[in-house]
């Protein structure tokens, strides 16, 4: 499943970049992050919860910064997590691209390629798609709100 969101943030590009390069900030803007701890440079371990009606998923896994290309204003993060109770998992690649729109205006484009595996992927694909899209939207909204509010 592929998703993307584009939003305009009232902050300079460097500021947005620095904000996003801090996993602490990213995890705060991502709805559902239950915990996030650093294992080593660019590698984090966390718990992520998502609820679709009565189905509560609790993903445990890792998040890794794979690309931080400040030249191109492009970053990639890879997430791999499992839900042990339901026997499912998720694999996702989040890409962020920043475009300068003005000294205090930046366009952020976030793209997500995600695969929901196992039972949840099998039976809940359409709704999971919708949920994932909503999460990405919320992420973009939170990022713009946090930066604009600073």
């Amino acid at each position: 499943m592929n998703f993307s969101q584009t939003c305009s943030i009232s902050a300079g590009r460097q500021k947005v970049w620095d904000f996003l390069m801090d996993m602490e900030n990213v995890s705060q803007c991502l709805p559902g992050v239950e915990s996030m701890e650093k294992l080593e440079e660019d590698l984090y371990q966390g718990v992520y919860k998502i609820k679709v009606g009565p189905i509560a998923l609790k993903f445990q896994g890792t998040l890794k910064f794979e690309v931080r290309d400040e030249q191109q204003w492009h970053a990639e993060m890879r997430a791999e997590a499992k839900d042990r109770r339901l026997g499912g998992g998720v694999r996702a690649l989040l890409e962020v691209d920043l475009t300068e729109q003005g000294p205090d205006q930046t366009e952020m484009r976030v793209s997500l390629e995600s695969h929901v595996l196992g039972k949840v992927g099998e039976f809940g694909q359409p709704v999971m798609r919708k949920k994932t899209d909503a999460i990405l939207q919320e992420f973009a909204r939170q990022v713009s709100e946090k930066l604009a509010g600073e």
């Binding site: 695969h115 992927g121 694909q125």
Partner: peptide, 10 residues
């Protein structure tokens, strides 16, 4: 099927 994943599973 989408990328090898069947979505019509019942």
């Amino acid at each position: 099927m989408e990328e090898g994943q069947v979505s019509t599973l019942h």
